[in-house]
Design a protein around this nucleic acid. Structure first.
Lengths: 255, 255
DNA sequence: GCCATACCGTGGTCTTACCAGTTGGCCCCC
DNA sequence: GGGGGCCAACTGGTAAGACCACGGTATGGC
């Protein structure tokens, strides 16, 4: 599999050019050799040190900038950033532009994170978490008749569930995922009205989750949450069928 | 805010160079003017048409490639891709890498993904998935005495569990996470030996997961998997305490 | 008719030069 | 002596032209 190895082995790994540079920087960033806030050395010098031309180095830097790992500013230099979820906006825009059916798949990841989060929350949730959850519950109840505000309240509640786990990783992954789901909701805002029975059910459903979390029983809260998602899914399917002729449009305000 | 507009307005929007090119391609892609599967015109010609140099155009193309929107292949040309969630893996790798005490926290995300994956797998797993799981199981058994190979076999099994869910999103997130965990394992490879009783248990534990998946009972397979993780966690803690004086070093080969 | 080779188009890279913001120091003027 | 403006030396941003490496295709010999 090893191809005829090059005579002019430049310096290190088999990769060359862009791949080499990208891999190098990636490694430095992941290893912590280069840390957020650091300022990279100048492009010209860095290019020499890595044994590549400046354009190639710039390609790699642009790629990293696209991932939000570094920030390039003219005259200032290139500094390492701590990437946050804001970068995902660019990406999700492209994803949603072409495949709208991805939401179902992403939803699976959301359920995964959220269910694990509530389990963790059973161990780690503090009084302040419960307080905020109660407030969110009240807001869900108060905005039950408003499609937009109701959806936001709903989302806020679930967000707080994840916060209660006090896990930075779960929080990061979840926010990225929920960002995508939120965008898709907004994108297809040909709102299907929420039936009155459904509204009452929504409040009760979230309250049950809250109660389950209060008991700090991992299994119970997990299952309660899964039921909530299952019902939301079923409801979404029903709506999709009813409104099948104008668009495959779910509504917002279900979970 | 509009700065003193340039006399040499090149052609269109206020942006110039990279930004102009990126915005142009972005627009074309989102508008559907360029669709997935299409092949972009050659770099040289495209650069001329856009009124920029080739390196700049290449920077933009690399950026898009990083987002998974296009795929650049030497000799073939640049083709538009249907972006999928696989890009998230690259992103999460960077995001999660820079949170301080990764492993424990990331492990929670891993459990989250894997447990959801096996649940989905209960619905979607095909015969081929089971076949590969059986093979992985055999490999675990065969390499039970080899620390490195054993760890790989262990990892492969869990990887296959996620594959069986047939969810691109779960797969992407999982690969990013497991990549990080693998790194941390390698980083602290002052291997603590796996006790003999533990070895026998390992094989049996994975077999139980496989059996549970065979039954396609979501609850059961979820719980079996969680037990597996819990035992691995406990074992890791015990080892950490035993070897407390030289480093907080878990071993590889537990889960 | 088949296979090997040369050709052509593609991305991949290098080189060199110059343009454009930022910064900081130096000098001149007040 | 102090303050403000100018200039120089950074930094990244862009341009042009050449060449290399890879893939497919066409064309030649066999």
């Amino acid at each position: 599999m090893e191809e005829t190895l090059r005579i002019t082995r430049p310096d290190e790994a088999g990769a060359k050019g862009f791949d080499k540079v990208f891999a190098f920087l990636r490694e430095q960033l992941l290893n912590g050799t280069i840390r957020p806030g650091d300022r990279l050395i100048a492009e010209r010098e860095l290019a020499v040190q890595l044994g590549v031309s400046r354009p190639v180095l710039r390609e790699a830097l642009r790629a990293l900038a696209m991932l939000g790992v570094v920030e390039i500013r003219q005259g200032m230099g290139t500094v390492v950033r701590r990437p946050d979820v804001s970068v995902l906006g660019e990406f999700f825009t492209f994803v949603l532009a072409q495949q709208s059916d991805i939401t179902d798949d992403v939803m699976q990841a959301r359920i995964a994170i959220e269910c694990q989060a509530v389990r963790l929350a059973c161990q780690r949730a503090m009084e302040s978490d419960f307080t905020r959850l109660r407030e969110a519950l009240a807001r869900i109840e108060a905005t039950i008749d408003e499609p937009v505000a109701g959806g936001l309240a709903d989302f806020a509640f679930h967000q707080l569930l994840v916060e209660a786990a006090h896990s930075a990783t779960l929080r990061s992954v979840y926010s990225a995922i929920s960002d995508l789901l939120t965008r898709s909701h907004i994108a297809r805002r040909e709102v299907v009205r929420v039936s009155p029975e459904m509204r009452a059910h929504l409040v009760e459903d979230h309250r049950r989750i809250y109660i389950a979390l209060l008991s700090r029983d991992e299994r119970q809260v997990d299952e309660t949450l899964r039921e909530h998602f299952a019902i939301g899914h079923e409801f979404r399917l029903r709506n999709a069928m009813e409104a099948a002729r104008r668009a495959p449009a779910p509504q917002e305000n279900t979970e």
